[in-house]
Design a protein around this nucleic acid. Structure first.
Length: 508
DNA sequence: TTCCGACAGTGGGGTCGCAAT
DNA sequence: ATTGCGACCCCACTATCGGAA
């Protein structure tokens, strides 16, 4: 199959917003693809590469060579090129990678170049990723979508699952099973603003667990072989020896566990996320960084214990298996209750001890691998500040033509000016986007046709955030974590906005 | 007919490792 | 030694479609 076929299908998929039409376009193409190119086609059309990453980003894709007029490149040829480019990263020079990239792009027509550029920069933006592709695979292979979804949760990589479905139907899909040593997409949580709201969404008693501000891990053990994976299924076994040792010491030799690693201080309080994150991503001299910043591990779920798959069991049964297989110090602290006041007290106590929040869990629901399951609901405290808009950046995609990303500043009483603390584009409705674009242009200082528009500091905006962290990027040395807009404070004059001292005092 | 779950999109800050400067 | 880039940790929120209620 030719790359141009995919480029055309992708354009057709991107053209509308109806999902059923997208699925029809994708399924039509999958019905035509050669079996040995099915993986490549499914990967490309769901925005992935069989190579996962090849060391090429937006910067390397800036100036493509002149396009050809005739489209001749096949999927296999393009895939082979990407293999060679990946082989150059790490060992070879950037120049060698660059020239391979030029050779590849020089053999493509303009629409193929556009498609491949979007794919390689991770910005396909056709309104179809794994979720829609699952339906398309099901349609093309004439199998139920639930079968495809089930196989995907166990295999973790849709192109392999899709190729199996197209080649062998339901029978081939049924052959996928939980395999120790191969990661499963972790279950994610929904969120709520309070314990009462979270408990209201679930029925009966619930489990309320510490939510630790660390790195999510999935540990597999078969015999004395232990592997550890992240939320995106990357293997970090070599970076977390403490975890490997802890799992190796357990009596059971056949385990799949879900948990969180975190750096704790000697008093048991958590280090800032930056410390845990830096420790986990250190790959060189692990023995030395381990001395300085040891990791603690807390498990909260078990997907397999002693040869038994637990994914489909209720949460309570999985947790019972967890506590049987692990010593209590490796299990995330939790409370089981049906009383909202008791839950609230546990939440407050968790926050007092320095942790990020809690996760409220149904005792009944199965493990919804790879999904934002309704059975888990996270609750975190919310801080807010009244900050001043200093500038805004023009948006992209569906925000084209709208001023989107706000530059936020706190008041500096000493200088009479403002200190920038970060940016946010979150929490804005279409209505608010339209309103603020008009308002900012009226307040603009200097040119409005660049990448950002500077505005007179006259608008106060209420911003929610999860915490204040150290920053080397911003002049005040601090930045907001996960900032999002709540509302504009037209009632509040700029000289009553929060100060940089107030912000600094929030950092502990 | 209305409601709501799942999905895609729009981007945020920080750190590490590597290659080029 | 410093800088730029890619990768990957953490993540919130809104709009939309289409099946469920």
């Amino acid at each position: 199959m030719l790359l141009i076929d995919l480029a055309r299908t992708s354009a057709a998929v991107a053209a509308g917003s109806a999902r059923l039409a997208k699925i029809a376009h994708l399924a039509e193409l999958l019905g035509r693809v050669e079996p040995d190119e099915a993986e490549i086609a499914i990967a490309y059309l769901s925005g992935e590469l069989p190579q996962r990453y090849i060391g090429v980003g937006w910067k390397s894709l800036q100036d493509p060579p002149e396009p050809r007029l005739a489209a001749t490149a096949t999927l296999r040829q393009v895939d082979g090129f990407l293999d060679r480019i990946k082989a150059q990263s790490g060992t070879g020079s950037q120049a060698a990678r660059r020239s391979l990239l030029n050779e590849l792009f020089g053999a493509l027509t303009r629409p193929e170049q556009v498609f491949l550029t979007r794919l390689l920069s991770g910005e396909l933006r056709q309104g179809a990723l794994d979720g829609v592709m699952v339906e398309a695979v099901a349609k093309a292979a004439e199998v139920p979508a639930t079968e495809v979804r089930r196989a995907l949760t166990l295999r973790g990589w849709l192109p392999a699952v899709g190729a199996a479905a197209l080649g062998g139907g339901v029978e081939a899909l049924r052959a996928f099973h939980l395999e120790v040593g191969r990661p499963v997409s972790p279950m994610l949580a929904q969120s709520a603003t309070s314990i009462a709201a979270a408990m209201g969404k679930l029925t009966g008693p619930v489990a309320i667990e510490w939510k630790l501000d660390g790195v999510r891990v999935q540990a597999h053990r078969t015999g004395d072989q232990v592997s550890v994976f992240t939320r995106t299924l990357d293997d970090i076994t070599a970076q977390v020896p403490e975890l490997v040792e802890a799992v190796s010491a357990l009596p059971s030799g056949d385990l799949v566990l879900d948990g969180e690693v975190i750096a704790l201080r000697s008093n048991g309080r958590p280090e800032p996320f930056q410390v845990t994150s830096g420790r986990v991503s250190s790959r060189t001299d692990v023995a030395r960084v381990r001395e300085k910043t040891p990791l603690s591990i807390f498990f909260f779920d078990a997907l397999r214990v002693d040869g038994e798959d637990l994914l489909d069991l209720p949460g309570e049964a999985r947790h019972a298996a967890l506590t049987t297989a692990l010593p209590p110090e490796l299990v995330t602290p939790r409370l089981v209750t049906d009383d909202a006041a008791e839950g609230e007290a546990f939440f407050k106590e968790t926050i007092r001890s320095g942790h990020e929040g809690v996760v409220v869990k149904s005792l009944q629901t199965p493990y919804a691998a790879g999904r934002r399951g309704a059975g888990w609901i996270k609750v975190k405290p919310r801080h807010t500040l009244d900050l001043v808009v200093l500038a805004a950046e023009w948006g992209h995609g569906r925000r084209e033509g709208k001023l989107s990303n706000l530059h936020l500043g706190a008041r500096d009483p000493e200088s009479g000016g403002f200190v920038m603390l970060g940016k946010t584009f979150k929490g804005l409705t279409d209505e608010l986007l339209a309103w603020q674009t008009e308002r900012f242009l009226a307040l603009a200082e200097g040119p409005t046709d660049g990448w950002a528009v500077t505005v007179r500091p006259e608008l106060v905006v209420e911003v929610a955030f999860d915490g204040v962290q150290q920053s080397s990027r911003y002049p005040g040395g601090v930045a907001l974590r996960f900032a999002r807009v709540i509302r504009y404070r037209s009632d509040k004059p700029v000289d009553q906005a929060d100060t940089i001292e107030t912000v600094r005092s929030l950092m502990l």
